[in-house]
C-alpha cells in the first residue's frame, strides 16, 4: 500500500476552494453586494449566514482525540444528516434536512447566560468556543424511539464552558433553551409543542466530562439539521435531552421543566437516562435498531457509559417514576 506523507508545503485539502463554491463566486459577489446595500437599511443582516449546502460546511481544523470515543464504526454523514428529529422543522425524519439548511441563520449567533452565576451576559458564539480546543468525541447516540447511531461529534467539554460563567453555590441545575423564531423554524408557527424547546440537566451531569457542547460532526461545522451552530450532547441519556441550536443557558436552584415532561409527564421524566430495564410506557427500551442495520441489538445501561456515570445516580431508584 502506498502511504503518502503530506509535506509541509502541500496545500491541505481543507485549503482548496471547493469547485461548487468557486463556481458560485459571481453569486457570492452579488450576494455580498446585496448584503452591503441591505446593511444600510438593516445592519443586523450584515453577517447573516445560513448553511444552504452541506458542501459549504467549513472544516474545523485539527481536533484533539478523546479517550471517551468509542471504536464502533460511525454512521455515515448521510445517515446523520438525513434522519433527524428536530420538530422545529416538522415531524418527519427528513423534514429537518429539507428545511433547516436554508432557513436557520447561524451567523451571527449568541447565547444568553442568566441565573445563578457570577458572569451572566450575552456571549457571541465565537467567544464561547474560541478559548477551547475542539475535540472529536465519537459517541453512541440512542433515541427514545429505540433507534441509535454512532456519531463523530466535534465539541468542547461542557464543564470548561460552564465554569467560565462561575455558577454560584445555588446553581443546582442548568436549563438549556433552543432558538424560538418561527421565521427560521417554521413548524414553530403551529403549537405542536410549547415552544421554545427546553431541556435541563443537574449541575453535576452538566459538569460531567462526557457532556459536551457540540459544534460539528465529521470534522466540519454543525449542519443546520443537527442543531447548528451549537448543541448539547449527553450520550448516556435519550437523544431528546441533547437539545439543539442553543440560545440560552440558565443556572437555577429548582429543577427545570423540560419540554417532553411538560407535555406528557406520564411518559417522559427529567432524567431520561438510557435504561433497557425501564420501558417507555408504550414500547420496550430493551433493544434498539442501529440505523443502517435491519435487526435490533440489545440496549446497554446508560447507553454503554455505565462505568463513567453510574456514580451520579447512586442511591436513586431509577425504576421509580420520579427518576425516569
Amino acid at each position: 500500500m502506498l502511504i503518502r506523507r503530506p509535506r509541509r508545503s502541500d496545500v491541505k485539502p481543507s485549503e482548496i476552494t471547493s469547485e461548487s463554491i468557486y463556481r458560485r463566486r459571481r453569486e457570492f459577489m452579488k450576494a455580498a453586494g446585496t448584503i452591503a446595500a441591505g446593511s444600510l437599511l438593516a445592519p443586523q443582516w450584515l453577517f447573516s449566514r445560513t448553511l444552504d449546502d452541506l458542501e459549504q460546511l467549513r472544516d474545523l481544523g485539527e481536533l484533539k482525540p478523546s479517550p471517551y470515543s468509542t471504536d464502533e464504526s460511525p454512521n455515515s454523514f448521510s445517515d446523520i444528516t438525513t434522519y433527524n428529529n428536530f420538530y422545529e422543522y416538522g415531524f418527519g425524519k427528513d423534514d429537518p434536512a429539507r428545511h433547516a439548511p436554508g432557513l436557520l441563520r447561524v451567523e451571527p449567533w449568541s447565547v444568553e447566560v442568566t441565573g445563578e452565576c457570577e458572569k451572566p451576559g450575552t456571549y457571541a458564539f465565537e467567544d464561547l468556543v474560541k478559548p477551547h480546543r475542539l475535540e472529536e468525541r465519537i459517541y453512541r447516540f440512542r433515541c427514545v424511539e429505540a433507534w441509535s447511531m454512532v456519531i463523530p461529534w466535534v465539541g468542547i467539554p461542557m464543564v470548561n464552558v460552564l465554569k467560565r460563567f462561575q455558577p454560584t453555590s445555588r446553581a443546582r441545575y442548568v436549563e438549556f433553551v433552543t432558538l424560538m423564531d418561527p421565521e427560521q423554524m417554521p413548524a414553530q408557527r403551529r403549537p405542536s409543542l410549547p415552544w421554545p424547546y427546553r431541556e435541563g440537566l443537574r449541575i453535576d451531569e452538566a459538569m460531567h466530562p462526557l457532556s459536551i457542547f457540540a459544534v460539528g460532526v465529521y470534522g466540519k461545522e454543525m449542519p443546520a439539521q443537527n442543531g447548528a451552530p451549537i448543541r448539547l450532547v449527553v450520550p448516556w441519556k435519550y437523544g431528546f435531552k441533547s437539545s439543539k441550536s442553543l440560545v440560552k443557558i440558565r443556572f437555577t436552584e429548582e429543577q427545570p421543566l423540560n419540554t417532553w415532561q411538560q407535555i406528557t409527564p406520564e411518559e417522559y421524566g427529567f432524567y431520561a437516562n438510557v435504561n433497557p430495564e425501564v420501558d417507555h410506557p408504550r414500547w420496550s427500551q430493551a433493544r434498539e435498531r442501529r440505523v443502517g442495520s435491519f435487526f435490533r441489538q440489545s440496549t446497554q445501561m446508560f447507553n454503554g457509559y455505565r462505568e463513567e456515570v453510574a456514580h451520579l445516580y447512586r442511591g436513586m431508584d431509577l425504576r421509580s417514576r420520579e427518576y425516569w
Partner: peptide
C-alpha cells in the same frame, strides 16, 4: 421494494 434497494427508503428502511 425498489425504495429499499435504491436507498430512497432513507437510513432506516425497516421503519
Amino acid at each position: 421494494g425498489s425504495a429499499v434497494v435504491t436507498g430512497a427508503a432513507g437510513p432506516n428502511p425497516v421503519e
